[in-house]
């Protein structure tokens, strides 16, 4: 098995909100790696730091100390502008409430990160349609979010999270608003994209969905208390046979 370079590394990451007596230590020395092709789930009770971890890992929030490295880039060394550019090109987010822009069609939503990054509308939309087509969602391309089911919107959100050069997806309770079957379909799509080489960090409080991940990290009070180990997908497939 070849040793690949991690797509994401967190090294001794701390995140403290506020200071003094009122300081809240949301993350206290978290280290983890996500490799290409890997989907890693983060589980833990409310207030354990799951969402903070996801926001810090995706460059939406900055750590108080420690390093966040995406590919070869240490996010802590970037100014706000460079960080925003890196997010546009490398990291996509998927939220519980889909977060699609209601006045844009599915294809326009998927094209948005490319357009924000300076690509002209026409080629951006062509690539967005290709991305939707690859995921079997072409029939949704011209629909607006209010004409799509929750599961369809979430699959479009995954297409948007991984459009263009983006290969890292941060999914925060992506199944939270979906029924059991639809939630599973969304996880199946996320799994498929990771099997094709993307990397994902998935926050969920439902073990059934964490079961789609290669590895599960358990957070308590901002600390990783446990992990299911580092079986890589190749080993796992072997084990499942």
């Amino acid at each position: 098995m070849s040793v690949s370079h991690p797509a994401l590394r967190l090294i001794d990451v701390h995140r403290t909100h506020g200071g003094g007596e009122a300081a809240v230590h949301a993350l206290r020395g978290v280290s983890l790696e996500v490799f290409p092709g890997e989907l890693v789930a983060v589980m833990g009770p409310s207030g354990s730091g799951k969402s903070t971890l996801l926001n810090v890992a995706g460059g939406l929030d900055r750590p108080t100390s420690g390093q966040v490295v995406i590919g070869d880039t240490d996010l802590t060394s970037l100014d706000a502008r460079a960080l925003a550019k890196l997010r546009r090109r490398r990291v996509g987010f998927v939220f519980q409430d889909y977060n699609l822009i209601p006045s844009l069609t599915a294809a326009e939503n998927v094209a948005l990160p490319l357009e924000l990054d300076g690509e002209r509308a026409r080629p951006a939309r062509r690539r967005a349609r290709e991305a939707l087509g690859l995921m079997g969602l072409m029939e949704l391309a011209d629909r607006y979010p209010d004409a799509m089911s929750g599961g369809q919107q979430q699959r479009v959100a995954i297409a948007r999270a991984l459009v263009g050069t983006r290969r890292l997806v941060m999914a925060d309770e992506p199944t939270g608003a979906l029924d059991s079957h639809t939630g599973e379909e969304v996880l199946r799509v996320l799994r498929q994209r990771c099997d094709e080489g993307a990397s994902g960090l998935l926050v969920t409080h439902e073990a059934r969905y964490a079961g789609w991940a290669d590895r599960v990290v358990f957070l308590r009070d901002g600390v990783v208390v446990d992990s299911t180990g580092s079986d890589r997908p190749e080993q796992l497939l072997h084990a499942a046979r």
Binding site: R15, V24, G47, G49, N55
Partner: peptide, 10 residues
């Protein structure tokens, strides 16, 4: 100071 707080969602 050690009490866990709610996740901050920017």
């Amino acid at each position: 100071g050690e009490r866990p707080g709610r996740d901050s969602v920017p």
